[in-house]
Amino acid sequence: MTNDLTTTSAIARSDGHWARTRRAVDRFGDFWIFAGQTAWWMLRGSLLPQNWRLLVPQLYEVGYRSLPVILITGAFVGMVLAVQAIEQFRAVGLEERMGAVVNLSVVRELGPVLAGIMLAGRIGGALTAELGTMSVTEQIDALRSMGVNPIRYLVAPRVLACFLLTPTLTLFADFTGALGGWFVSVIQSGIDSGPYWEYTREAVENFDLFSGILKGFFFGAALGLISCYKGFHCRAGAEGVGRACTEAFVTSFIAILILDYVLAVILQQISEHFWGFRSLL
């Protein structure tokens, strides 16, 4: 009798696992369908002037309103990097090469990644909450019932704004990052400004700037898509919206780090193929 019970509950449990795995796979498939439709409407929408007026408020929200936070993040990242590195460089007497390391790290890695993560928090959360609330109050169904495609009307402009502006904001973060590094190295620690920039120029190639910007495009698309998707598939109620926001942020964060790794590997290959190994020191 007890034996019977344990086997049944074991079956029920394994069935639960199976069902959960299948749901996860389904959701993953759903996500890519959603992403494909969004990409299609981003292309088509940008050809139709009547859609541009949908884009402008999103550009304002994503770009202009995120600028302060991005500038501050960039500046402190540059400063902290310089503070951490300077003792080590001084110990080996190479402090003039500080600029190379600080600026290269900012432009290649920290600028795009931290800009992406800040935006995932600032914009991603807001997008998920906005679309999630619209979903649970049936506003998205209302759009559909009026013959308006919510992907065209709501998702495409938001993702497009993230896609276009994350690389732009990355450039701003790079700029203040460089400024922050310079402030700590040159102004505070008295390194000669001439060689500092000379080594920077030698180390930071156009390709590095390009790879940072390329990452920005990927991060922007990822965080925009994930946040909108989570908002669309939000459970009912305030709790559902809150949970969707948390999930959107965590998923965007992880996606950004994974993308960063994959892109770093690919870009490294390309760089080595064309320019060979580059030494910083």
Binding site: E138, Q139, A142, S145
Partner: peptide
């Protein structure tokens, strides 16, 4: 025309 139970106005 569809009148939603909760209105579903765009807020």
């Amino acid at each position: 025309g569809f009148l939603f139970q909760m209105g579903a106005l765009f807020d």
